[in-house]
Nucleic acid binder design. Structure first.
Ligand SMILES: [Zn+2]
Ligand SMILES: [Zn+2]
Ligand SMILES: [Zn+2]
Ligand SMILES: [Zn+2]
Lengths: 154, 154
DNA sequence: TTGGATATGATATAACATATCATCCTTTCG
DNA sequence: CGAAAGGATGATATGTTATATCATATCCAA
């Protein structure tokens, strides 16, 4: 485990402690698998990687439960448009977690999590205000092509 | 079939003709099923409704193909976050189809399709410009609670 | 130490989606 | 007209994501 991941795990334990929950060994391992991946993973992907990385088999049911937990602790995000999961890019940031916005490359599968400008969300809210609709999640998933893949295709 | 749906079907046939394609009987029926629904439907939902409405069984494989066709003609949209399909709310509008924005009620499942303000998309694009990411679909799916459901919970 | 709460395992099944090959239908052109 | 070609649909199998439910294990406090 890289020092980087080590530090993120440590911070994650603090986050869980602060909500009165525990980052168990297996939850920690699942998070580690996600942290080590450059692309988001499905629950079934995690089962495979977990087995390779820890020489231990984990039922997919358990992975889903651990993902639910990690999402609740805001350590992991679910990409709804892909059915995949990725670790939060801002675990070690101390500031409040902003509305996440994901840039999903449809060519290589990489995802970049960026904070969305507050005024854009506000504009968006204003734009739908007339319909009486109350926004909930406020998570945006934008598909496209990343910088690297654009360079390759040239 | 209501006069309203009748008219939309007629316009849909014109749309297909303009692209050199045909709105076959079964494609038309699938579109009719979607037009008659107040909530989006999965491909399997469509199989069931089709059977009830037309006393004819349609393989789900065929439904997926017809949905692909209808989406290509922009007569139907796919909600990526739900794995469901709905007819476009603007088939009979003559103007160019804008970037669709969907307001999905997580309580009752209803979905409202509204055109997104151009300047918001532009802001969004500017906001991600520094990352070098090139936006593709530009379809936003926003989850929340609709006006009616808010009223009920009061 | 024991009982309740939390976490995990095991099994089954639901729900959404695609791959592939076969058959049918329509259009076209000799 | 009749055969060839292309498009549309059917049939079958399987892949992928997710949930339901009951059993077992682990932890912690009384
Ligand atoms: Zn995050
Ligand atoms: Zn890429
Ligand atoms: Zn539309
Ligand atoms: Zn509602």
């Amino acid at each position: 485990m890289s020092a980087d991941i080590d530090q993120i795990i440590k911070r994650s334990q603090e986050v869980c402690a602060s909500t009165g929950n525990k980052l168990t060994e297996k939850r920690k391992n699942v998070l580690t698998v996600l942290l080590a991946s450059t692309i988001p993973l499905s629950a079934y992907d995690i089962v495979d990687k977990y087995k390779a990385q820890f020489q231990e088999s984990l039922p997919v049911m358990s992975v889903y439960r651990m993902l639910d937990f990690l999402i609740q602790e805001k350590l992991v995000h679910k990409l709804e448009t892909a059915g995949q999961y990725m670790s939060c890019a801002h675990i070690t940031c101390n500031h409040q977690h902003e509305t996440p916005q994901f840039l999903i490359c449809d060519r290589c599968g990489s995802v970049k999590e960026i904070g969305i400008k507050k005024h854009i969300i506000e504009d968006l809210e204003r734009s739908i205000q007339s319909t009486g609709f109350a926004l909930a999640h406020q998570q945006l998933e934008l598909h496209g092509v990343c910088k690297q893949c654009q360079a390759i295709s040239k």
